[in-house]
Design a protein around this nucleic acid. Structure first.
Lengths: 151, 151
DNA sequence: CGAATATAAGTCGCACACGATTTAATCGTA
DNA sequence: TACGATTAAATCGTGTGCGACTTATATTCG
């Protein structure tokens, strides 16, 4: 038998990728009960955070910040449009570009989301120091990953 | 206008959740070219790592370690079965339990995956110290998240 | 100018994730 | 021992992610 030994690089507990993957999913799950009453999914919430900072905004600009491509964003944005939170329109200066603008309702939703970060943070009860340090390290990793040559 | 200000908790760059979510996706994307030639997806690779450590193994045991439920695992395991990597069978002592056992091919695939962790690590070029520290912090966070009361 | 190229979004197909529900088997206990 | 509660998988529906491709528009340069 080719049993895995304690130091084997293929052991689950040796992986950096696994806690990253699992923690990401569990955090998304924690958001769900906070966002569901607002009719939002977690990726939709991410996109809205971008729009609350800059609206109007092109699809590719959103993709640049969320690191998502149009094949993910287009359906997501159509759902936000159907909920009346954003408006989609072709840019005049370049007909290829689709401009996403928050509606009144989309702007207003920001107030309902204001308490979400604090509520989530409180649920996890994660020490602030550790959280800050982890965020710094994740930001570094993310920057490195995002700068890797594609392919 | 309710513009977001630099210190606003709803700003994307203030979030811990976003780099977690984005880094997790980018890492999965990095695995893809390494796993695709072996006919594997990233979640399938995770499940196989568990099976390389303990096979046979029940579906719920896999779920316990991967933090995935049967609604995700059942289809995934059926695909692994179709590829001839695992065998699914009802346990004799309890007919509710489905036992997953690696086939010869499933065992053999472990050797082809042996180089995957090193290759990935090399691609990212992430300093070992930082990686170790980040992993420790993610393990801590994951333990905390997994121990939260459900609901 | 005009063809080749590049770019922005969208479409398609597949494989997750996961809440909610269902089905089947086992367990607990009156 | 019967029967309600519990448990293990599976099923179903929705919403991502993403590789591969298409479509429409703009740009470049011969």
């Amino acid at each position: 038998m080719s049993e895995t030994l304690p130091g084997d690089p293929l052991r689950l507990e040796q992986q950096l990728c696994f806690p990253l993957y699992a923690a990401s999913r569990l955090v998304t799950r924690l958001y769900q009960p906070l966002l569901e009453p607002l009719g939002l999914t977690y990726p939709q919430y991410i996109v809205l955070m971008i729009l609350w900072e800059e609206s109007p905004c092109s699809v590719s600009r959103i993709g640049e910040r969320a690191l998502l491509a149009s094949n993910t964003l287009t359906p997501l944005l159509k759902r936000l449009e159907q909920q009346g939170l954003v408006q989609r329109s072709r840019a005049a200066h370049d007909e290829r570009v689709v401009t996403i603008a928050l509606t009144e309702a989309g702007q207003a939703l920001r107030r309902d989301c204001a308490c979400v970060p604090a509520k989530l943070y409180q649920q996890v009860g994660y020490p602030l120091d550790e959280a800050r340090q982890l965020k710094a390290q994740l930001d570094t990793l993310l920057a490195r990953l995002a700068s890797l040559p594609p392919g």
